[in-house]
């Protein structure tokens, strides 16, 4: 609709442009998630704060889920879409079991999620999705997705509000980017190696405490889900509530 409208009731300034007047079906519910793959484990962590705008909706609203088959799933962004995505995925997983009577591999779960996301290409799920699991050789794996289904297997990935704060830290600490082997006097890159579970948990905790300091939508609590060949376990650590 093209209309000549005054900018405010009191102004003389006239704007001549389309005016936006429609319902916005999305909101940003903040929060951050982080997945790291190890040699024989993978972790997927998320803070437990949920926000809209400057309001804290809840200090404990978990957003990382163990969906069965040793698979962790989290979608971060618009919470309405995120819960819907998880629910639909759980349903699809159940039908996979009915039809095939076997475990859904993480790689197959990733492809399924791509189709679920791209299926809503023109009314997207407004979420950054990460899944974690173990591959056929028992190695940890992380897959991350953009809102419309483009995906990639990675060693680590941060998603959500503080992704841009955490990701460079991860590049340096997980993939040893910009690190040199001290013995070589700055001539050789430091060799990458798998991190132990204890190192990874410490890294995740540091990432989230740092993100809590710098991002208002991150905080309250940190929930880390750890998947190993023994199954899934959860650890909780409090974060600052301010």
């Amino acid at each position: 609709m093209q209309k000549a409208v005054p900018t405010t009731e009191y102004a003389n300034e006239i704007r001549n442009e389309p005016i936006e007047h429609r319902f916005n079906p999305y909101s940003d519910n903040g929060g951050t998630i982080l997945g790291i793959a190890g040699e024989d484990f993978a972790v997927l962590a998320g803070d437990t704060r949920q926000t809209t705008g400057y309001s804290i909706n809840s200090r404990y609203e978990p957003k990382v889920f163990s969906v069965g088959d040793n698979l962790l799933l989290s979608a971060n962004g618009f919470a309405g879409d995120a819960t819907q995505l998880v629910k639909v995925f759980e349903n699809r997983l159940k039908w996979y079991h009915f039809n095939h009577n076997k475990k859904l591999e993480t790689a197959s779960a990733a492809r399924l999620i791509q189709h679920m996301l791209y299926g809503k290409r023109f009314f997207p799920y407004y979420v950054h999705t990460i899944i974690a699991g173990l591959d056929k050789d028992g190695k940890g794996e992380i897959y991350s997705f953009d809102p419309v289904g483009s995906y990639e297997r990675e060693q680590c990935r941060a998603g959500g509000a503080a992704a841009s704060l955490i990701m460079p830290f991860l590049d340096n600490q997980v993939n040893f980017k910009n690190q040199m082997d001290p013995a070589s006097h700055g001539t050789k890159k430091r060799e990458v190696r798998y991190l132990t579970l204890d190192e990874v948990i410490q890294l995740v905790r540091d990432a989230f405490t740092a993100a809590t300091e710098r991002h208002i939508e991150v905080g309250d609590g940190l929930e880390i889900l750890i998947v190993t060949k023994e199954g899934v376990r959860t650890e909780y650590f409090p974060l600052k509530k301010d």
Binding site: Y26, Q50, T52, N57, S58, A79, G80, Q84
Partner: peptide, 22 residues
């Protein structure tokens, strides 16, 4: 539990809608 017009739901020991939120 709190549910809003976007289908976002959350639970918390204290909840309020609208102005109550502030």
């Amino acid at each position: 539990k709190h549910v809003d017009l976007l289908g976002v739901s959350y639970s918390s020991p204290t909840l309020a809608t609208g102005f109550g939120n502030h």
